[in-house]
Amino acid sequence: MGRMNLNKLRALREQKRRELGLGEGGNNTIYVVVGMGTSGIAAGARETFATLNSELEFHELTNVILKQTGSLGLDHAEPPVEVRVPGMPSIIYGKVDAVVASKIVRKHILERTLVNAHVFDQRAVDIVQGAQLSGTEAR
């Protein structure tokens, strides 16, 4: 590949994004991220990931990207799963075993309702920002 000007590079980026379903036409993409740090894996994150994978396949949900990541810092609520559905607030679930994982797919992704008793949300954004700005801890 020879030299490429900026416009060609932008066009190539948009083409690749579309191929990945992340471009402007890919706004319906749902992300499900499993926190798979060592403590998450010890608490059964592999089983959670496998259940999510099989549930997504069972319901033929092709617009969902299932990913694994490192620890989300919720060691008291392992394994954690973050779900980002367009039009809904980003939610982190904690203590997600196989039963809760299938509930997340059926209730949160298909019915757009939150799964009761497993929401382990982070502190509010304004408090975190305020803490960073003033150099203090929020609690």
Partner: peptide, 19 residues
């Protein structure tokens, strides 16, 4: 929705309204 601990136990009960 009933949620897990927010980390403000001293100030409980804590209620968060999204979005």
């Amino acid at each position: 929705v009933k949620a897990g601990c927010f980390g403000f136990c001293e100030k409980g009960p804590v209620v968060k309204i999204l979005p």
